[in-house]
């Protein structure tokens, strides 16, 4: 490698500070710009509940909430999360009690191998924050960005319907999901 190229490599690998609040806890790290948010969560913060499924932004297994909006964390650089509030699957259960969406996936057996489940639960959390009482069609459309390769969609849809029911009758939980469209 020529000296000029080596210098460029150095500049491009220069680390940037990224401060985030993840599931209510503040973290500060120095990261390379090319580090994807999902790798930051898994490798730097040890939050391995967020899965990597496809690496092509299609499967939704890595879905998390960024300032309340569902986002594929494999399609965002960690540096872009500077100053943002993130919720991952690990932030859903509170005080040892499953979130109603998690409970509904359990009760309705909304999973087979379980690999896609964290992403589905986070996408469902966003969907229900936008539309607390969705029809089956709206659920299917709302989860279009998540793939289940076991093809267990029937029970996943059922789980979201059940969660919608529980959440509309249960006392409101403190959630960090955006209510607005933007």
């Amino acid at each position: 490698m020529a000296p000029a190229e080596r210098r460029l490599e150095g500049i491009r690998s220069m680390k940037h500070k990224v401060a985030t609040t993840v599931n209510g806890r503040r973290h500060e790290h120095e990261v390379e710009p090319r580090l994807l948010l999902v790798h930051h969560l898994r490798d730097n913060l040890g939050l391995t509940g967020t899965h990597i499924g496809c690496d092509t932004s299609q499967c939704g297994a890595c879905t998390i909430l960024v300032d309340g909006k569902a986002v594929k964390s494999c399609t965002m650089f960690a540096v872009q999360a500077e100053g943002k509030s993130l919720t991952t699957i690990e932030g859903m259960a509170k005080d040892g009690e499953l979130h109603p969406i998690q409970q509904a996936f359990w009760d309705e057996h909304g999973l087979q191998c379980g690999y896609c489940t964290p992403g589905f639960i986070m996408a469902a959390a966003y969907l229900l924050a936008q539309n607390p009482n969705p029809t089956e069609d709206e659920i299917r459309k709302g989860l279009e960005g998540n793939l289940c390769r076991c093809t267990g969609y029937v029970n996943i849809v059922k789980a979201v319907q059940t969660a919608a029911k529980t959440m509309s009758t249960a006392p409101a939980r403190k959630t960090t999901v955006a209510a607005g469209g933007n």
Binding site: S57, G60, T63, K69, A70, V71, K72, T75, M76, A123, Y126, L127, G142, E144, G145, N146
Partner: peptide, 8 residues
């Protein structure tokens, strides 16, 4: 795209 894509 999908919800996640449209959010970004």
């Amino acid at each position: 795209g999908d919800n996640q894509v449209r959010n970004m």
